[in-house]
Design a protein around this nucleic acid. Sequence first.
DNA 1: GGAAATTTGTCCGTATGTATC
DNA 2: TGATACATACGGACAAATTTC
Lengths: 244, 244
Amino acid sequence: MVAKVVERQMGVALWRQIADRIRLAISNGDYDATGMVPPETALAAEFGVNRHTVRSALAALAEEGLVRAVQGRGTMIERKDRVSYPISRRTRFSQGLGRQVREIGTELLGHAQVPASGEIATALGVPPGTPLIELSTVSSGDGRPLSTAVSYYPAERFARMAEEYAQLGSVTKAFAAHGLDDYVRVSTEIVARHAEAEELSLLKLSPGAIVMETQSVNADLEGRPVEYSRTRFAADRMKLRIET
Amino acid sequence: MVAKVVERQMGVALWRQIADRIRLAISNGDYDATGMVPPETALAAEFGVNRHTVRSALAALAEEGLVRAVQGRGTMIERKDRVSYPISRRTRFSQGLGRQVREIGTELLGHAQVPASGEIATALGVPPGTPLIELSTVSSGDGRPLSTAVSYYPAERFARMAEEYAQLGSVTKAFAAHGLDDYVRVSTEIVARHAEAEELSLLKLSPGAIVMETQSVNADLEGRPVEYSRTRFAADRMKLRIET
DNA sequence: GGAAATTTGTCCGTATGTATC
DNA sequence: TGATACATACGGACAAATTTC
């Protein structure tokens, strides 16, 4: 291949120009055959720059969520379409995703009984120290991790939450098994930040990836809180839709 | 100062260990006197590593929004408390921020009359090509940029939108000046992503910073859309609260 | 299963450019 | 203007993970 050396000087950093070129090549479908970006050394040769400069460019693209580098294998191109997750008074995880994904996977990572502490006690309207069931879960669509959550339920009222969820794979059904047929979302708070190490691993994200974290409270129809949940969505795979 | 060389080997990259150390020092208040992190060369000497290694650590902290580097000046520590922005059927920018900030600033960056195109026409329920008033704004709290928005209004119904907004500094008041006394939020969609160059500049963010982008439609009480808006919030300064 | 090749990850040293004070 | 401090780029070396043979 003819060496296409990028222009030097002129205010725009080399690595930015290279990132733009690679981004263009990806959107042109130049790498569709393999779904991978050429190796760093090949790109460095093609653009006539040092490998480190290519790495800066690829790092920027990885932060955008456009590519994902794996040591020893290469740098893969990521699909970027986002699944829409509706948040309403009646937010139900599985129903919400509906026809956007063929198969919804829910995995129970672990569970425990813990005393309610501070913020969570306030959110659930119980005294600090009240026993709670804690569930850690990961949900995915068509095999792609979409969100991970830690949820808390009053242990007295929902004693078998972990077992029911593990068996039924649905919070709504686990509630029903405890005699709670309906519940509504009473509050949701959303922040966006960089994913932490654990989230990177659970959601299979690249370092620098973004998560949207929601903290939500669900209550029964009498207004008694039944669930406090902290959910982290992979920001490059999900968008939130608020329905009023 | 005694040289505190970080441990080599052992799986965790040097720059990560150093990032952790600096993060800890910041939260300990070690740098409160100046509000700045020591220069890169000083940190490199302190930790007994190359300056590039310190740069990797600082870059990671900058992405977290914890620090902000300015060429020629130094690396400043950023405050991280987030202003809560409520989204409800009656979302009003100024009222929502309420007592969280002392002073709310709204700046009209520019305005234009443009034909409705595709997505926006659909959202506003008008034929493509319908003339719209486009407003570009930046809002800040206590002098800190919080969000920037591009909003569209049917030009026929809200002909003096730009002038009224420029004078009144409020969409709600500008609507009132056109005889519209009440309106409600009908849809909101939220994504999180890295800020683009223009957003970095408008919101005074560091490269790699995160924005939450909302696309929303407001309608009058008869259900006719009156506003389509694309708002980008500085993610490290804002959280969204959904009120149902 | 194991060795070699490939590919990304980390770190060092150096040099130069550019913005701020 | 000069000094300081961050930004960019190069070159080299080795480590770690994966794939290939």
